[in-house]
Design a protein around this nucleic acid. Structure first.
Lengths: 172, 172
DNA sequence: TACATAAATGATATGATATATCATATTTAT
DNA sequence: ATAAATATGATATATCATATCATTTATGTA
């Protein structure tokens, strides 16, 4: 019953920890204000979970997040609470669930005020690093066309792709 | 420990059971020949699992398939064997694993001799019906471009999309 | 045929992700 | 101050999946 974070590959934090910390503070403040506007509350626990996702910069499972919050952020966090909190954060569009990986990521657009484009998630199968990029309108239209011709509708415009990141590709 | 097939929505079999049965027979024969060519064997158990996928026309979990084989096809089938057999069938390209749904489908191109196009799977979130369509070369190129710009590589060109089929959309 | 080897399947244990439900604590409104 | 609503804790259980060892079945060769 050791930690849930698989040790396969280290977590990458390019811009230096200190900068990230302070930028996370801003993101959290923004998220809190956004919730307040909508009449919901970003409680301490919810903030901690979101902070975990912001800091690790990885797609995390609920159980991994529970461990991370307890061990690194000093906040006791039963996994079932994490699931509930993630559900809340998803509803607030602060977090995305990646079905392809059964993991969760912080939305990279929390501090943007404009409407988000359709996200395209590139998920490294090996280290779970995630890149959230925007899909071109024309590409999305082509996909949607395929879908509707087949008698389906896109349930969520979000697109997830099985990838390998360059770092793992080199290492592999 | 009741059946694993969720009763939410009935399985749809448009062309009439009898026709499907006979066409499945052909598909199975083709699959068997294909294996023989490669020096592998489509055993009785493997045939039964593939038949289950062909008949239900749904994305099925391994456990659902185990139940289906036992109850509907009269072949005792421990879930762990189903996993092994699905792995084999995937290797033979007779079956695809849909990570988005944690389920498996029969490949719709088993009887085609030409090389398959890149598959795009439309998965109904509600009834797990799946449509396997081909993605246009230009669309795939656009996606791949997005991916490589972000420093990733597509691990599998297979694309899975969260959808709702028209039947469920009407019912819902 | 008899035997050795390889391949396939059976059986069990366990891990990992997720949902359901009821109890308790905290916040909010009146 | 109290009731109602919201948030969190705790437990049980469902669901998807892998690892491992035992047993059976098929295959090749003396």
């Amino acid at each position: 019953m050791a930690g849930h974070i698989t040790g396969e590959s280290p977590i990458q934090r390019e811009p230096g920890i200190a900068n990230l910390m302070s930028s996370h503070k801003q993101v959290l403040a923004h998220a809190e204000a956004q919730c307040a506007d909508k009449g919901t509350k970003l409680t301490q626990k919810r903030k901690t979970v979101l902070q975990g996702l912001l800091q690790t910069q990885q797609a995390m499972s609920a159980y991994e997040l529970a461990d991370y919050c307890r061990d690194e952020l000093g906040e006791s966090m039963p996994p079932m609470s994490v699931y509930r909190i993630l559900e809340f954060l998803e509803g607030e569009q602060l977090v995305h669930k990646l079905k392809l990986a059964n993991r969760f990521v912080a939305c990279v657009h929390i501090t943007c005020d404009h409407k988000h484009a359709v996200p395209q998630f590139l998920i490294c199968e090996q280290c779970h690093r995630v890149s959230e990029v925007s899909i071109k309108e024309s590409t999305l239209r082509a996909l949607r066309n395929n879908v509707e011709t087949a008698g389906f509708k896109l349930a969520s415009p979000q697109i997830e792709l099985n990838c390998v990141c360059d770092t793992c590709a080199v290492a592999g």
